[in-house]
Each structure stands twice: as C-alpha cells, then as structure tokens.
Write a protein that binds this DNA or RNA. Sequence first.
DNA 1: AATCCGGGGTT
DNA 2: AACCCAGGATT
Length: 313
Amino acid sequence: MSKNYTIEIGQFFTNSLLAWSKQINRNLPWKKSQNPYHIWLSEIILQQTRVEQGTPYFNKFIARFPTLQALALASEDEVLKLWEGLGYYSRARNMHQTAKHIAFEHHGVFPSSYQDIRNLKGVGDYTAAAIASFAFDLPYAVVDGNVFRVLARFFGIQTPIDTTAGKKEFQHLAQILLDKTQPAAYNQAIMDFGAVCCVPKSPNCTACPLHNHCHAFQNRLVEVLPIKSKRLQKRTRYFHYLLFNWQEHLLIEKRMEKDIWQGLYQFPLQESHTQEVSWEQLSSAFHHSHTTFNAKLLKTSKPYQQRLRISKL
DNA sequence: AATCCGGGGTT
DNA sequence: AACCCAGGATT
C-alpha cells in the first residue's frame, strides 16, 4: 500500500507533524532525560494505559526506585503492591524480572541496541522502538494505537490493523516516514498528534494542518478508519466476596487458577453470571472455609462486576 | 491466527 | 454497551 504514495506526500506528512509538534507543549515527566531506565519504566507502565492514568504510577516508581538497581533489589511483593490498581499485572512481574536480569547479569548496563532491547521480557516491537529512539536516538519507528490511526486516516489504508498483514504494512510505512535524522522527535510528534489532534472520536479535522492532504478527511472516512476486523463483545462476570472471621483475622486467599489476577490475593469469592446469587450457592461453595478453618462468615459483599472481552466471530 | 490479560475514561 | 488506551505473551 505504501508503494502507492509519492516521496513528496510522505515528506509533507513528516515535516507537517514535526512542525505541528513544535507548537504544542505536552510536558511528560519521563521526557526530562534520556535515561533508559526512566524511558523503559514509563513505556512499560503506558502499555495499553492512558497517560493520565499511568503518570502517577511512574512518579511513585521513580520516587521509590530511583535507579534500576533499586528496582532489582526490591521484592516482587513490593513491586506488585506499587502496581496495585493499574491492571495487566504480568507487566509488573516481567518488569521486575528484567530489572534483575540487567542489574545482576549485565552489570546494570541497559542494553543499547534495538535487538538487545527487543529481547527483554515484556518488551515488544513498539516498546523496543520507543526505547531505542527516545533513549539512544536510533532510527526505529514506533507503531502504537495512535500511529495506526494517524496513518490509516492520512493515507487511507483500509487493511485491518489487527491482522498480521496489517501490522506489517503499517510498520513498513511508519519506518519509511520516520525522519532518520531525528527519530525521537518524529516518534514523539506522531504519537502526540494522534493523542491530541487525530483523536479516535470526532476529531476537529478543519483545524488540522494536514487535512488538505488527508485521504480520510477528503473521502469522509475519518469515522471509519482505522479498520479492525475482530468485533469485540463484553461478557460480564459478577464477584461476590465473603468475609470470614477466623481467630480475630479476616481470611484471604491467593488466586492460583489460570485466570485474571493470577497470584494476587482476595477475599474468598463466589462467582456468578448474574448480579444475584443465592445464599445456598454461597454457603455450599464455602463449606470448605467453614470446616477447614472453623471460620465464621461475617458478611457478603455487594456484587462486583468485571467485564472481559470475548471475540464474537 | 486467536486468545488472554485490566482498569478507567469517553461516547 | 461499545470503544479506546504510548501492547505483549501465550497457545
């Protein structure tokens, strides 16, 4: 698809983004330096996480673990405790494991080539390109949700972004468009542009400096692009927590099954598909807690919802 | 290629 | 209720 576009339009795109980025000011705390530890930490936190949600976590982690060595020396429990509430908890485990790996097996020296960075646990194509460009000025184009959207719209690409072919096509085009003389500035510019200007819903296209050459705007495809092939649907799970008193303590348990929150702790739990659950269900489900610990059921919680995505077809 | 893994905001 | 977010690992 990228073969259909001229060099000139690509240069217009790149130069326009860089010019646009100079007139906005998005001061993010992890952009104050090229410290690879700070860059890496921020990128892990921001995976599938909004900047506004991740920023306080970044500040907490930097305050508690000023260096990669400090993070490596921490216990996994403490790392998870600091991560609490952010979701996708395997990110925290992989991050901690990687910190220990770099600290104890590479003398604390953060890898400085794309391939070495890419080989770190928890680091995929996007994060490797982000660290390589932001921390080491290496010419690797980032492709995140913002980039998919901006490229799909401006170049009118209708290939679904959630397919192997789509990912390959967008990655290839992004690499062509990258300004190799200033990869960090370009990568920052295209993501800022997607986050601030070319937003998912109802972008203000008439105010966009690229709209004269934007395929989606010229062809009324802004609300259609980017295209995703997999339609997603939500299934709702209801969790009813039970508070057991045992020798003046509240019983908690550890989630060992292969499911969400693996290895995390919770009050004993009965799950149901509906908001209501019968007392018989609760009682029989926790006969074990009663008999094993001689614990007394104090009360049950209101039902908590957890929605998860399941593919429709 | 599909599926799993989350919390939180927006529409 | 559906969609989206500075995605990656697993199967």
